[in-house]
């Protein structure tokens, strides 16, 4: 995968998201900038509460009431999404950009057949007739490896296994051949073998259709398997961003290193007696520490880290990090 090939397909430009309640504003995502090239897979990694899901929902303007985009911009092929009318953003949802979610059971509506839910996408975005959309739904399920799709379309989500449900979600998301697929922890709720199958499926579809993917996960191991580039989020900020191989060989941010140590290493020569964890908890939004946000949990924190926020700097070809340790080394 070549990097920096032309203008980005999807550009997140200094995006901030606030929670507003009872007149109080709390910043949850703070001036995050990310680029997604066509056909690329961008991994978004961080602990829960780091803002990675909010970031992904804000792209399609699916933030819940009480959350709002407070600044910055999101552009698809140079066209801003943040100020589109409701009707125009609707034409993009599920059509040019689509999403799949963590929990395929709850993400599918229990009272409609699987076929109906897939066919809806064709009816909405392609204006197809009911019968036509139904035929296309069968094809779409076949594409994602659902066996006997002509029977499956008449079944309800409860009749399907977890893996099959996630395949249905993927079929639905890819029905209109979107340019971007946002996958929010798509394999977290699945057991390990199914997880591997779904990842394999996503990789295959991504190669065939050339869909760019934003792959969100708390699991660096999973991200390593699918992503071309990885951005690590901590407390609403990107702390490190690099091509996947570079990040794993040369992690520069102590948080990234912490996440890596927290992943079990099946091929390590000696299994560590205990799995490392990052000490402390993610600070609550609105109660962020001064200076570098990671300093209370950081093993190499110094005086400057408690008072001053490190700037994002370039530490290698296409490798950026925001940490005083890296700043001093350059």
């Amino acid at each position: 995968m070549t990097m920096n090939a032309g203008p980005p397909l999807l550009e997140i430009d200094r995006l901030s998201i606030d929670a507003v309640s009872a007149g109080r504003q709390v910043r949850l995502v703070d001036e995050v900038s990310l680029n997604l090239q066509a056909g690329q897979v961008l991994g978004l990694v961080g602990e829960s509460g780091c803002g990675k899901s909010l970031l992904s929902y804000s792209i399609l303007r699916l933030l819940e009431p009480g959350l709002r985009i407070a600044g910055g911009n999101i552009r698809l092929e140079g066209k801003s999404l943040t100020d589109l009318s409701e009707r125009k953003i609707r034409a993009i949802r599920g059509n040019e950009i689509s999403m799949i979610f963590q929990e395929p059971l709850t993400a599918l509506n229990p009272v409609f057949t699987v076929g109906d839910q897939v066919a809806e996408v064709f009816r909405t975005h392609r204006g197809m007739s009911k019968a036509e959309a139904r035929r296309k739904a069968v094809d779409a399920l076949a594409e994602v490896g659902v066996p006997s799709p002509e029977i499956r379309v008449t079944q309800y989500p409860a009749d399907l296994s977890g893996g099959m449900r996630q395949r249905v979600m993927i079929a639905m998301a890819l029905a209109c051949r979107p340019k971007v697929l946002i996958a929010d922890e798509p394999t977290t709720a699945l057991d390990a073998t199914i997880q591997a199958q779904i990842l394999e499926l996503m990789r295959g579809l991504q190669r065939n259709f050339g869909t760019a993917i934003i792959f969100i996960s708390h699991d660096l191991g999973v991200v390593a398997e699918v992503a071309d580039r990885v951005a690590v989020l901590y407390c609403g900020r990107v702390v490190e961003e690099a091509p996947v191989a570079e990040l794993f060989q040369n992690p520069r941010h102590p948080y990234t290193r912490g996440l890596m140590r927290a992943v079990p290493q099946p091929d390590a020569e000696v299994m560590p007696a205990i799995l490392h964890e990052i000490k402390g908890n993610v600070p609550r939004p609105g109660h962020l520490p001064g200076g570098c946000r990671f300093h209370p949990r950081c093993p190499i924190a110094r005086d400057i880290c408690t008072t001053s926020d490190p700037q994002r700097i370039k530490v290698g070809a296409d490798h950026h990090v925001a940490c005083w340790e890296a700043t001093d080394a350059h």
Partner: peptide
């Protein structure tokens, strides 16, 4: 949320 994400 899924229904909205589909563009309905």
């Amino acid at each position: 949320r899924t229904a909205r994400a589909k563009g309905l």
